[in-house]
Structure formats: C-alpha cells, structure tokens
Design a protein around this nucleic acid. Structure first.
Lengths: 181, 181
DNA sequence: CAGGACATGTAATTGGTTACATGATTGC
DNA sequence: GCAATCATGTAACCAATTACATGTCCTG
C-alpha cells in the first residue's frame, strides 16, 4: 500500500488533517498521486493504529473539530525503509486505447468524440501546470537551487512533458482517424 | 469495471482462452492494459454468467483442456454502449515521484539508484516497442492504410512517445540530483 | 437561498494482489 | 534435471469506488 507512504511523505512538511491531505492531492499533487477522501480517512486510521502517526484534536469555533496528524519516529523509519525498496511501475490501464481499437467495429465517429474530449481535458491540465511553473519556477532551478525546489520542479516537469506528448498524440490520432473514415 | 470491456474487445478478433488473453496482455498489449491471470479467469466467469460471452471446451491431447470464449450478441451490444460512455483517465499513482520528494529528507543517493533502475527498465521497454514498430509498421501507415492497422499503430505510438519522454525526464532528473548533492 | 468550501466519517460492493494448488510438455 | 510455456483455478487479503450521512460558514 503506497497510499500509506504518500500520506506519510506529505506529513513530513507539517502536521495535517485528512482534509488538508485531500486538498493537496487535488491541487498541486495531482500529477503524481490521487486518492478519494474516504480512502485517506481510512488509511489515517490504519497508520494511527500502527503507530506511524500521532493525532491531536483541535476544537474550532463554528467549524467541525479538526484532527491533526503528525509523523512519529516509527513513521519516519518506515519511510526511510520504503525509499530503499524497489519501486514498481503503475500498471497501465488505458480505456481510451481500448476504445480506439473498437473504431473498426463500430466506426470512428464515437471514438473521435472521445479523443476530442480528452484533448480538452489535457489542454486544461497543461495550462494549470504552466501556471504553477510560472509562479514558482521562474527562472528554472539550477544546480545551486535548494534541493526541495529541485525535486518539486522535477515532479512538475514530469507532469508537463507527459501532458504535452499526450496532446500531440491526440492531435495526430484525431487527424488520422478523420482522414480514414 | 473496464477489464470486462477490455476482455470483450480482445474477443472481437477471435475466440480465445483465458490464457490467450493473458498472453496478449503481456505481449503487444502491455502498453495499454495489464491484468493478472487470476483476474482474467475471474472476470471471464463473471461475464459468462452475465451472458456477454459463451464458452466451449476443447479437449487437447497431452495438455489440459482449453476453454474457448467468444462474444455473444449481448456482449457486442455491451461494447457498443461502452464506446459512447465518457472515458475517465487513469488516476496517477507515481511512487517514484513521491520518493523523489523524500530526497531532501534522506539524501539523494538512494533515489538516484531508483531512477537509474527505472531508466534501464524504460530503455528495454522502448527497444521492444521499436521492434514491433519495425516489424509491423514500416512504412508508417497513411490515410489509405486499413483502419485496423491505423488504430494498432496509434496505440503503439502512444506507448513509444510516453516512454521516450520518461527516459528524457529520468536523464534530466539524475543529472540534476547528482550535481546537487 | 443556493452552491461551494470546510470537516468527518460508515457501509456495501467491486477490483486487484498474493499466496496456494496442480500437472503436462518442450527446450537447454 | 531445471526452467519456461501451456493451462486452469481457489482463498485470503488488501485497495478503491460508490452511496449514504451530517453539519457549518461564506460568497454571490
């Protein structure tokens, strides 16, 4: 379960509530991790039982109580071990490519529509990444930049470059299918 | 469950055994889908109950019996409906990017090792794709090419281009982390 | 006054992995 | 003789989604 380790990693920065972690996943982090809030709350329960995090409850006026989680020594050890373990790739599951092969059975009109939909999603995604890039990484980090910013920059670059090739591929595919109808 | 639809799609070509489908996933298909054989056998049971496929058992000399599955009318309808449904993106879960952010906590030596490991995996993957490209898609398909080959070619191109940017990103990341130690 | 952000959860179901289980053939 | 390929499955467990459930504050 790597959601566990992703949550622990997020808690290195500061103590956080389940909702804080959820928002972080939804915003800047969404090019490298994704989880629903139900999953996050459940996992927090589990790692609390395992002693990897501790919790303190903060009473808030006019808002529901907040449970702030922070890393324990055991949690830090867990993370350090995990860094050294082999890292397996996420298994590809690309519905769009499967549907693409169905074009010859059911015609390409429907699949072209799906590709165009995905194209507009990806274009939006890229705009967001570019916004983050401009705001936090101009000028581009160099060898002298603090390592924290370097790793964030590299993660963002990963999101950007994959997004770009996907957009190119979508254009190419839409063109080819359109001229082949 | 899109594994269901992926299996149905695979059965459009011809009737297949669970093992045939598994091999197809392992080989050429692995740039767009991935599943274990346990999952495939289980799903085949489910879609047989749902009437989306039919089965016939083939006795084989000197080998275990084979169960060959083929699409039913209902299965084809199911697929046609699925093509028109909105297609959601696979949720990103990138362990390597999470580990990358841990470099500032635990040092970059361990993470550089992980990046190099991934690099060699990706380089192998790319060589395989190139082999398929040379064998089946020279010269490159054009507007006149049969649609079947066009869709297969596009799926392969998707695998190749993503593999390439990942390799570039890995080089860039290893360089940047190394000079920042 | 409606919708979105904040804030936390439970329950049921489905999807996926890991371990267990068997047995023949073919090629090195 | 050992590993890989062919061929099929069960059982236990872990991961993830969907639906249900509640309540406040703030902004337009």
């Amino acid at each position: 379960m790597s959601l566990k380790n992703t949550i622990l990693t997020s808690l290195i920065e500061s103590e956080k509530s389940g909702y804080d972690i959820f928002r972080q996943f939804q915003n800047s982090l969404n090019y490298y991790w994704n989880a629903s809030y139900q999953q996050i709350y459940k996992t927090l329960d589990t790692i609390l039982e395992q002693g990897l995090v501790s919790v303190r409850t903060v009473k808030q006026e006019q808002k529901a109580d907040k449970k702030l989680y922070s890393l324990t020594e055991k949690g830090i050890e867990e993370l350090e071990n995990w860094v050294h373990e082999p890292t397996s790739q996420q298994k590809t599951k690309n519905d769009l490519l499967v549907k693409l092969t169905l074009a010859r059975k059911f015609g390409s009109a429907a699949i072209i529509k799906q590709l165009q939909q995905r194209l507009s999603e990806k274009e939006n995604e890229l705009l967001n990444y570019r916004k983050i890039e401009r705001a936090y990484f101009t000028p581009k980090p160099s060898a002298e930049t603090h390592i924290k910013n370097v790793t964030y920059y590299l993660a963002l670059r990963n999101g950007i470059t994959h997004c770009e090739v996907e957009i190119n591929w979508l254009h190419e595919s839409i063109d080819m299918l359109s001229s082949n109808q």
